[in-house]
Write a protein that binds this DNA or RNA. Structure first.
Length: 288
DNA sequence: CTGCAGGCCGGCG
DNA sequence: CGCCGGCCTGCA
């Protein structure tokens, strides 16, 4: 671990609130000065912005520039994608205006799998609380600016944790799911490192073999982790709501099936469907 | 007290 | 197959 800093020129699609508050991550929190601090796989990172620059500082076990480029998806041209998407219709144009600073993060695969298993039938404050307690109890401690932070526990660090210990952390009925998924990974029944070399549909099938991972969670993992399948369109209650309101207009939202939604998303948004999903989700969810 | 929150799972028709 | 009820917990 090493304290590092990095200052880069401001880029257009990069707003802290949009990135960290659009619902893709659980371990970033706003500081009193408006910056955000997060715990990531490689340590602790703080990000701040002004009109001209973006400032990163942190305690990381890797090069901060390399990390930032990967984590914040810097090589992708969001401006170009936004201009293409915004031409589709006025809804997309509006939602992009609302979430113009969103970038889709490349989060650690293991952490993303477990975090989204925890997210099932849950609410964000509780999800964040569970992940914090889990990390504090089993993760590695990292210091940054005189404060203690805890990395998300590795599969090995969770190897001997029992379901009742999970239950005590507030996991609820997800205790068994976490336990069994961790077992499968530790016993190498499922090798998540192989996912990086596999076809998207095959990864999805393997993900769904993990207890607690269904279609929605699998899609979130594909999009929000460093697997980064940008065309994947996760459908949760908010996305189905907004897609029905805008395009399908079924009087009974419950009767809309996900296949129909996915087809529309794929037709309209194609290879950028994942980002389109985030704009729509963030827009609809925040504005109610 | 009931409802519900970024679904999944198992059982049933 | 598609549909439906139940599920930990915490908070309104």
């Amino acid at each position: 671990m090493e304290r590092q800093e990095l200052k880069i020129d401001k880029i257009d699609a990069f707003e802290l609130r949009d990135i960290f508050d659009c619902g893709q991550c659980f371990r970033w929190n706003e500081e009193p000065n408006g910056s955000y601090t997060g715990v990531v796989k490689n340590g602790v990172l703080n990000v701040n912005c002004d009109s001209k620059n973006i400032y990163f500082k942190g305690n990381l076990n890797c090069d901060i520039r390399v990390f930032v480029n990967k984590y914040f998806d810097m090589k992708r041209d969001y401006e170009q994608i936004k201009s293409k998407l915004s031409k589709i219709d006025e809804y997309m144009d509006n939602s992009i205006k609302y979430g113009k600073g969103i970038r889709i993060l490349n989060q650690d695969l293991w952490e993303t799998i477990i975090s989204y298993i925890i997210s099932a039938n849950n609410n964000i404050p509780r999800i964040k609380g569970i992940i914090e307690r889990l990390s504090k109890k089993y993760g590695t401690k990292v210091e940054f600016e005189n404060k203690d932070y805890y990395l998300f526990p590795t599969p090995v660090q969770l190897k001997d944790v029992t379901t009742s210990e999970y239950r005590a952390l507030g996991l609820g009925f997800r205790d068994v799911r976490l336990f069994e998924t961790t077992q499968l990974v530790n016993d190498n029944k499922v090798n998540i490192e192989n996912f990086y070399h596999m076809k998207t549909t095959d990864i999805r099938d393997k993900l769904i073999e993990l207890p607690g991972v269904g279609p929605k969670v699998a899609d979130c993992i594909l999009l929000f982790s460093d697997l980064k399948r940008f065309e994947i369109f996760p459908i949760d209650v908010w996305v189905r709501r907004v897609m029905n309101d805008l395009y399908i207009k079924n009087s009974d939202e419950k009767k809309v099936n996900n296949k129909a939604i996915n087809e529309i998303a794929s037709e309209k948004f194609g290879e950028f469907a994942g980002l389109a999903q985030q704009y729509l989700f963030y827009w609809r969810r925040t504005l109610n």
